[in-house]
Simulated assay, not measured.
Amino acid sequence: MTESAASTPADAPADALTGIPAEILGDRDLDGARVLMSGGSRGIGHAIAVALAGRGAHIAMLAKTDTPHPKLAGTVHSAVSDVEAAGGRGLAIVGDLREDADVVRAVETTEAEFGGVDIIINNASAIDLSTIEALDMKRYDLMHDINVRGTFHLSKTAMPHLREAAAAGRHAQVLTLSPPLTDAEGRLDPQWFGRHLGYTMAKYGMSMTTLGLSQELSGTGVDVNSLWPATLIDTAAIRAMPGGEEMVRAARTPAVVAHAALALLSGAAGRRSGEFLTDEQVLAAAGVEDLSDYAVEHGRELIPDIFL
Score class of each variant (00 low, 15 high):
His196Leu: 11
Ala79Val: 01
Asp136Pro: 12
Gly88Ser: 02
Gly221Glu: 08
Ala126Trp: 13
Leu217Gln: 04
Leu36Phe: 00
Leu264Lys: 02
Glu108Ser: 11
Met137Asn: 15
Gly205Val: 04
Met1Trp: 13
Asp234Gly: 00
Ile59Phe: 11
Glu164Ala: 15
Glu164Thr: 12
Leu277Phe: 07
Ser207Met: 02
Asp31Gly: 12
Ala33Asn: 04
Thr182Arg: 08
Arg89Ile: 06
Glu289Gln: 09
Thr151Asp: 02
Met61Trp: 03
Asp136Lys: 09
Ala255Leu: 09
Gly74Leu: 07
Ala258Thr: 03
Ala258Glu: 08
Val257Pro: 03
Gly54Ala: 02
Ala51Thr: 11
Glu164Asn: 10
Ala165Arg: 06
Leu36Trp: 00
Val76Leu: 05
Thr253Tyr: 02
Arg98Thr: 05
Val103Leu: 09
Gly287Phe: 08
Lys71Thr: 13
Gly87Val: 00
Arg149Met: 11
Ile233His: 05
Thr220Cys: 00
Ile121Phe: 04
Gly219Thr: 06
Lys64Phe: 14
Pro13Leu: 07
Arg252Cys: 13
His144Arg: 00
Gly32Asp: 08
Ile127Val: 14
Ile132Ser: 12
Gly287Met: 03
Ala284Ser: 11
Gly274Gln: 03
Val282His: 01
Pro68Ala: 11
Val103Tyr: 09
Ala6Tyr: 13
Met201Val: 12
Gly212His: 10
Ile127Met: 13
Lys138Gln: 15
Arg34Gly: 01
Ile120Tyr: 10
Asp66Val: 11
Arg98Asp: 10
